[in-house]
Amino acid sequence: MATDAALRRLLRLHRTEIAVAVDSAFPLLHALADHDVVPEDKFQETLHLKEKEGCPQAFHALLSWLLTQDSTAILDFWRVLFKDYNLERYGRLQPILDSFPKDVDLSQPRKGRKPPAVPKALVPPPRLPTKRKASEEARAAAPAALTPRGTASPGSQLKAKPPKKPESSAEQQRLPLGNGIQTMSASVQRAVAMSSGDVPGARGAVEGILIQQVFESGGSKKCIQVGGEFYTPSKFEDSGSGKNKARSSSGPKPLVRAKGAQGAAPGGGEARLGQQGSVPAPLALPSDPQLHQKNEDECAVCRDGGELICCDGCPRAFHLACLSPPLREIPSGTWRCSSCLQATVQEVQPRAEEPRPQEPPVETPLPPGLRSAGEEVRGPPGEPLAGMDTTLVYKHLPAPPSAAPLPGLDSSALHPLLCVGPEGQQNLAPGARCGVCGDGTDVLRCTHCAAAFHWRCHFPAGTSRPGTGLRCRSCSGDVTPAPVEGVLAPSPARLAPGPAKDDTASHEPALH
């Protein structure tokens, strides 16, 4: 009773807030009518008042009428009001819900409408889902798969039609296919003929059939049928067999079959498995989609049935006599038709004709302190090069084509190399640097090759510096006499390219 009084008091307290929050009759008014909170006449009256005075006034009048009803109607109103779709449509209802007392429970059932309790003993237990329907569909599909699609060729003596089998029958139906081979029951999904010589313990000319048996419980189990008994694959494991010639990621696949039913060829011909030897223990289905393919039931050349050999690369099948050149017997292992072999060759040939990528240039590290003349020119003028003790990398590039010797140069053309002071002394051009340390401070000019250098860098042994005729380390061993002091540049003949010694390969005349 306390809860009923509290709900009535809360409705009177929030009546105006609810009326202002509800700006549309749908969905709240319609939901109240659906849950029998508002009768039909009051529903029509509220809609009429909404058209006349507006939605807030109409709902305020409806809530005032609701306060005169019993506690069950008020409880049902609060339940409908706080439904998710009403809270989404009328956003101003959320503060009312947040301020609702926590001790007021809106989930209690309506009085007088409590459903009768059902004894637990009368409640049926839930049924577990079964796979009976899938099993029945598999039974119905198996006879259809064994139905012949056409008439065999005159040369083929193997013609068999499976008798119709009602689904209610649980007995196995067997077809006489000759040579002791028996087909599987209607619940078998796949059958492959297997030679009895590969099964340990088999006697006589009995041949087993590799099947997948579907049981009534819905589970499946792969086994071997020899005669009327089934054997699990673990009985046929043979770890010492060295003649297993397995197909790549293979499961067994029928390579020879008669049109209309699988079996042995007439005249004692023995149908073979995809792999010879003992049956392997793992009978998992292969991951290669080509091995799941269903080959055609007629020859791809003459479009006739009979004894066919199936290609492992495509769905086509052929007569042995229709092949070019014809085959006398079934080859062992994987067999592919000429079209598949030709496609494989065409895929391999473009790969062989692809040009080989060019090898990157060989990189040879230079000892610290040495650099090529090109690196000396590329440096920024007026700045010493940083990191001189790091190992430089010199790339061996292809030799350029031989060019004509340089033409003779006048001494005026070499004027930018040297600057003559007032006393006739050779001065260095701006930006000249030593080729060893890279520093341009207090550098000297070689009178023979006009290269800038430090005496301490080229002659670290402490050799005394002569007063005139300074030469760098590369030119100090040259027998050519030094030019007379005061000459602007060496003779043009000295600039012609010539053979250089091994220790002077990195010091070429550089223009500054």
Rank of each mutant, 00 (worst) to 15 (best):
9 R>D: 05
9 R>G: 08
13 L>V: 05
13 L>Q: 03
19 A>S: 09
19 A>E: 04
19 A>F: 02
20 V>F: 02
24 S>W: 01
26 F>D: 01
27 P>S: 04
27 P>L: 04
28 L>F: 00
31 A>T: 00
35 H>A: 01
39 P>F: 14
42 K>T: 01
42 K>S: 02
44 Q>R: 07
44 Q>N: 10
45 E>S: 00
47 L>G: 03
47 L>R: 00
48 H>N: 06
54 G>A: 00
57 Q>L: 14
57 Q>E: 06
57 Q>A: 13
58 A>I: 00
59 F>R: 01
62 L>R: 01
64 S>N: 03
66 L>N: 00
66 L>K: 01
67 L>K: 03
68 T>L: 06
68 T>I: 00
70 D>R: 03
73 A>C: 05
74 I>G: 04
76 D>H: 03
76 D>C: 04
83 K>Q: 05
84 D>C: 01
84 D>I: 00
86 N>Y: 02
92 R>I: 00
93 L>T: 01
94 Q>W: 15
97 L>S: 01
103 D>L: 03
103 D>P: 01
108 Q>G: 04
109 P>V: 05
110 R>G: 14
111 K>V: 14
119 P>K: 14
120 K>Y: 14
124 P>H: 09
126 P>A: 05
129 P>A: 06
130 T>W: 14
131 K>N: 02
133 K>W: 01
134 A>M: 00
135 S>I: 13
138 A>T: 10
141 A>Y: 15
143 P>I: 08
145 A>Q: 12
146 L>C: 05
152 A>G: 07
155 G>L: 04
161 K>L: 12
164 K>E: 08
166 P>H: 15
171 E>I: 15
171 E>T: 15
175 L>P: 04
180 G>D: 04
180 G>S: 09
186 A>G: 05
187 S>Q: 07
187 S>N: 06
190 R>E: 06
193 A>T: 12
194 M>N: 06
194 M>W: 03
197 G>S: 12
202 A>N: 15
203 R>N: 02
204 G>F: 01
206 V>D: 04
208 G>C: 04
210 L>P: 06
211 I>W: 07
211 I>G: 06
212 Q>E: 04
216 E>I: 00
217 S>Y: 06
217 S>C: 12
223 C>E: 07
224 I>R: 04
226 V>L: 11
226 V>N: 01
228 G>K: 07
228 G>W: 00
229 E>T: 01
231 Y>L: 07
231 Y>K: 03
232 T>Q: 14
233 P>Q: 04
239 S>F: 11
240 G>A: 06
241 S>W: 08
242 G>C: 11
243 K>P: 09
245 K>M: 02
245 K>L: 04
246 A>Y: 14
247 R>N: 09
252 P>R: 05
253 K>T: 04
258 A>G: 09
260 G>Y: 12
261 A>C: 11
264 A>H: 15
265 A>G: 09
265 A>R: 07
270 E>N: 10
